[in-house]
Structures are given as structure tokens and as C-alpha cells.
Design a protein around this nucleic acid. Structure first.
Length: 425
RNA sequence: GGAGAGGUGGCAGAGUGGUCGAAUGCACCGGAUUCGAAAUCCGGCACACGGUUUACCGUGUCGGGGGUUCGAAUCCCCCCUUCUCCGCCA
């Protein structure tokens, strides 16, 4: 959520900056709501002050044993007017709140202006895509060829967009998550957390998934939703808190499954594990002093890159343009890993600075140097998407016979297994 | 699942219809004392919003919502939540 003071003070600038991300802010509506609110609120407060004064006088009179019936006769008229005004005030305030919650974050000045993913800017590349002396297969052919990846059975149990992994592939999947978690918690200074996989609407509102993106979520029962990313439970750890400034920055990492309905993505990435209803992800979250958030985003992005580098997976870093930046983010870098099976770079991590956007929704603050409560900044990023990382390992490390040579870094997690290969039989 | 007890400022904890946004203690900030510190003493110290604008005035907030009343932290109803005991259970 944006600071309403910013809209009051400099509406034109806000409109212009939001326009770069393709969001048409309804300025006349804002001004109309604001004027109505101001009018009703001042009138309401005047009446409340009148009532308070009268009641206080009645109390004083009764305390002295004086008859107060004159005063008491004056109150009902005030109250009648108040009932109406207070109701109208609530309506305007709710409308304003809903209006504000629907506005996306302002992109930072450095974000390249553009319409969609085609306008994203490549910042750097790491690693050389391997030259194959055979036609590389994609992870579906590889996994099924090894009898370790099974989509039909997953469909039988659940529905499409689910996967079943077996044996050493299931183990490799677990190894990847462990490996990532160990590096972030052991080398990058993150505290590992285990969090609920079901969250309430308030938490989702805090990080910005609700109210706008309910159709992307799986709802369970009356009040709970399966998490679409660990960002939701992890970031909300600080919701409503006033954090001692010396505790900043807070760095947290969690490995969780993520659940997405993928509404509106029919026909996209229907083959394989790229786009699933359920996938695992290791997520890094930082809560920082506002002065430090830009540096923290660079740092966190580097932490995600470290994983790809240790696994020897070629990737590039993309600066998302204004039009492709997510609702809550002020700035986002995507990491795209090279997938030989698709002959393309594909997103494997998304790292964003949300500035105070989520903190304002969550009421997550710290006491600043002046002793005033101030909103923290939040940053998060995948480090990495486990399923897509598994895909990348399979495709980049495949051999001509369909076997997979495992990267050195993972071998300690694979009880000595160095290759995935089909049974001899 | 059954029974009971609670949710008040950063924390602890008073307050059961009227000058209560709320005693007291701790923590914190400023000052005195001290060579300095501890201890002690004095003072300050919730948040949000609105109006005016450095001072100021007003409104709202005592888990959330609704009700009674001229007036609610205090009475009534509903919900959420925490704790204790019993049962069950990975």
C-alpha cells in the first residue's frame, strides 16, 4: 500500500509513475473520496466533541447533586445526527482503504520503463551453455527415460500439473532443497524457519496477494489458503511488530511447498515440471532499515546467484521493466537459468524490494533514531525454486545415453550417488 | 471434544458506569548528584487520524464486532485468541 500522504501531496507524480507500469490511477476518484472524507470527518468530530462536552457536564452536575435534565435533553439531537454521519464516514473510509489497497507499488527510478517481459533488460550472464555433441533432451524425456519421473500417476492421484518423483530423483529433489538451505543459513547469515503452509486472509493481505489475486490461490475451508510462496508466512512474522532497530536486518530462510492455481495460464508450459500446482521453493526474506533496502536487494540477489554458481548452472540476471514488475514490488531482478531442453533461459528466481509497501499493510515498524515508529522495508527472493532447479540439473548434466552426472556440490547429499541412470535390466 | 480462567500502554499490572488515555512498577529519554559510573532524586514518556501549523486544538483507540446508556476499559450479546485441567492423538 502506498502512503496516502504521498497521494495527497503529489498526486500528479504518483499518477505519472504508476502510468509507467501500465496502471491508470483514477485521480478524480481519489480526490472525490478525499474531499468527501474530509467533509464528513470534520463534521463528525465536531458533533462528537459536542456530545463529549455535554456528557462531561452531566457527570459533573450529577457529582455535585445538581439537576442535569436540561443538559440531558440536548444530547439525543446530537446523537441522531451522529449515527448518520458515523455510518457515512465508515463507508467513505472503507472505500478509501479499498482504493488504496488496489494500487500497485511505485517502481523505483532505476527500473527500465517498458510494457511487458520483452522490455526487461539483461544485466549480466554467468556461465557458458554447454555445447552438446548430441541433441539434448528435455527433463520429461530424461526423467521418464530413467523411470524416475511419472506424470500419469500424479494425474491419477490428483489432476494435471502435478508430478510424481521416485527413487534417486526424489532424493535429488530433497538434496537440492537441503543444499540451498545449508548455504543460506550456514554462509549467508539467514535464520532457518519452519512455517505454516496454510495462512489466513490477513497475512495474504499483508504481503499483497489479497484482495486482488484471490483467483491464483487455493482456498481451504472458510478462512485458510495454501501458501503460494513462503514469502507470505515468513514476511508476516513481523506483522504488527515494532522491532528494536538493533535487531535489523532480519534475515530468514524457509523451505516450503508452494501452491498456485495457475488460473489464466491454460496452455502455458503444460509439458513437464515447469509450471505446477505444487512445487518446492527455498525463499529468502529480509527485513531492513529503509536506508539499506537497495543494497539488501543486491546482496540477496547475489545469494540466489551463489546457488546457481555452485551447481555450475549458466544463468542470466534480468532487470524487470516497469510493466513486468509485480504488484507489490518497487524493483525486481529475475534469475533465468539455461535450459538446454528448451534452448532458452527460464525464470528460476525472482528477487524484489518492496520498500514499505508490505510493511505498511502489515504494520511492521521499527523505532527510528528520532524515537518515531517507522515502517521497515522488506526484500525477498527465491533461492531457488527447487523444481525448476531440478529440471536445470537434469537438462544441463545429461549424457548421450540419457543418464545424468550429478554436480559435485550435491554428492554429499546423495549418499555417494554420482549418476542417475536407468536400471541395467 | 469437555470444564474453567484470562486478553488493558514496550513489558508487568491496577482499574467494575462519570473530569480514565488509563494508578503503580520496570524499561526508555532528559536533568540533578558523581572525576566517571552504579544507586538515589526531579521531570518526560502510547498509537492513529483530522484541523491549524514549529507552541496548539479536536476525534478515535483498553483483543475484534454489535448492543444498553446522556456517558462504557467497566454492563449485555457474538466472534477471535491465550492459558490451565480432563479426554484423545503423530
Amino acid at each position: 500500500m502506498l502512503d496516502i500522504q504521498l497521494l495527497r501531496k503529489d498526486l500528479a507524480t504518483v499518477v505519472a509513475r504508476l502510468a509507467t507500469r501500465g496502471y491508470p490511477l483514477d485521480a478524480p476518484r481519489f480526490e472525490a473520496l478525499e474531499n468527501e472524507r474530509k467533509d464528513i470527518q470534520t463534521r463528525t468530530q465536531d458533533l462528537q466533541a459536542q456530545r463529549n462536552t455535554l456528557s462531561k457536564q452531566i457527570g459533573m452536575a450529577k457529582g455535585k447533586g445538581i439537576d442535569a435534565s436540561d443538559l440531558m435533553q440536548q444530547v439525543p439531537a446530537v446523537n441522531t445526527a451522529l449515527v448518520d454521519l458515523e455510518a457515512r464516514l465508515t463507508i467513505v473510509q472503507d472505500a478509501m482503504q479499498a482504493f488504496l489497497e488496489g494500487i500497485p507499488n511505485l517502481p523505483q527510478a532505476e527500473v527500465p520503463v517498458g510494457k511487458n517481459e520483452h522490455d526487461n533488460v539483461e544485466l549480466r550472464r554467468w556461465g557458458e551453455p554447454r555445447a552438446f555433441d548430441f541433441t539434448p533432451r528435455d527433463h520429461v524425456d530424461l526423467g521418464e527415460g530413467l523411470d524416475l519421473l511419472d506424470f500419469p500417476t500424479a494425474v491419477k492421484i490428483a489432476t494435471s500439473r502435478f508430478a510424481l518423483m521416485r527413487g534417486d530423483l526424489a532424493r535429488l529433489h530433497r538434496a537440492l532443497a537441503q543444499f540451498m538451505l545449508d548455504i543460506h543459513s550456514g554462509e549467508h547469515g539467514y535464520e532457518e524457519v519452519y512455517v505454516p503452509y496454510l495462512v489466513n486472509a490477513e497475512a495474504l493481505r499483508g504481503t499483497g496477494q489479497l484482495p486482488k489475486f484471490e483467483e491464483d490461490l487455493f482456498k481451504v475451508g472458510d478462512n485458510l489458503y495454501l501458501i503460494p510462496t513462503a514469502e507470505v508466512p515468513v514476511t508476516n512474522i513481523v506483522a504488527g511488530e515494532i522491532i528494536p532497530v538493533e535487531n535489523l536486518p532480519i534475515r530468514l530462510v524457509a523451505h516450503t511447498p508452494c501452491f498456485r492455481s495457475e488460473a489464466g495460464s491454460y496452455g502455458r508450459d503444460t509439458r513437464g515440471m515447469i509450471r505446477q500446482h505444487q512445487f518446492d521453493k527455498v525463499e529468502m526474506v529480509q527485513m531492513v532499515h529503509p536506508d539499506d533496502s537497495s543494497a539488501a536487494l543486491e546482496e540477496l540477489t547475489g545469494h540466489a546467484e551463489t546457488i546457481l554458481q555452485r551447481l555450475g548452472l549458466p544463468y542470466r540476471v534480468m532487470a524487470l521493466c516497469t510493466g513486468d514488475t509485480g504488484f507489490s514490488a518497487a524493483r525486481t531482478y529475475d534469475l533465468e537459468v539455461w535450459l538446454p531442453g528448451q534452448n532458452a533461459y527460464r525464470e528460476i528466481s525472482s528477487c524484489s524490494n518492496f520498500e514499505a509497501f508490505q510493511a505498511r499493510r502489515m504494520q511492521a515498524r521499527f523505532k527510528n533514531e528520532a524515537g518515531k515508529n517507522e515502517f521497515i522495508h522488506t526484500i525477498n527472493g527465491s533461492g531457488l525454486a527447487v523444481g525448476r532447479c531440478l529440471v536445470a540439473v537434469l537438462e544441463n548434466y545429461q549424457e548421450a545415453d540419457g543418464s545424468i552426472t550429478l554436480p559435485e556440490a550435491l554428492r554429499p547429499y546423495m549418499r555417494g550417488v554420482e549418476r542417475l541412470h536407468a536400471d541395467e535390466s
